[in-house]
């Protein structure tokens, strides 16, 4: 049974996402679009599964929801802070680069962490070293680099590491 399930839905998350996007794009929940969307959402991952070798499993869905909430809140707060910095005087800004040593190994974890860093408090992820062990980050205004690294690791990396583990 579960082998059959895996054959038919090679990527359950992709299937759900495609279905949701189809319904949003048509902006209806009519019966016709629900069925058509479901057909597309099942057949596209089935036909293209050869191009998606690695599988991602979400270990803790509730932790993911909590993480999304934390990130959205941080985006809101960060925007106020960045707006204040931008509208202030240029001379007061102290920009800087710093490296974050990564504990996560999965590609999806690293890319989500980089995206989160780019979306939150005055930081943009700039580069990843070849061996995927350090992430270069640029900050618009930074005073205490070790504290910033510690906050990124505790606030974003630890939950992501818990949600996506290699399988």
């Amino acid at each position: 049974m579960s082998v059959f399930f895996n054959k038919l839905f090679p990527h359950p998350i992709l299937t759900l996402a495609l279905w949701g996007v189809w319904l949003l794009l048509n902006n209806t929940v009519g019966a016709g679009h629900i069925v058509l969307g479901l057909i597309l959402a099942i057949s596209i991952p089935f036909l293209t599964s050869g191009f998606w070798p690695e599988k991602n499993r979400i270990r803790a869905p509730f932790a993911l929801l909590q993480y999304v909430g934390v990130v959205l809140w941080d985006i809101l707060v960060a925007n106020m802070a960045v707006a204040k910095l931008i509208l202030g005087r240029n001379k007061d800004l102290r920009p800087g680069f710093f490296y974050v040593d990564l504990d996560i190994q999965t590609p999806i974890g690293i890319s989500l962490l980089a995206n989160t860093i780019s979306l939150t408090p005055g930081t943009v992820s700039c580069d990843l070293t070849e061996d995927r062990s350090r992430l270069l980050v640029h900050a618009l205004h930074i005073e205490d680099i070790p504290a910033a690294v510690k906050e990124i690791k505790e606030r974003y990396e630890a939950p992501l590491n818990k949600i996506f583990t290699a399988c």
């Binding site: 809101l76 960045v82 240029n90 920009p95 005055g122 943009v124 640029h138």
Partner: peptide
Amino acid sequence: YKLPDFFMRLHGPTKATTL
């Protein structure tokens, strides 16, 4: 428009505009 170098300018659009 007003920030002095490219890496600092990068911060304005990526954050402020998304929100």
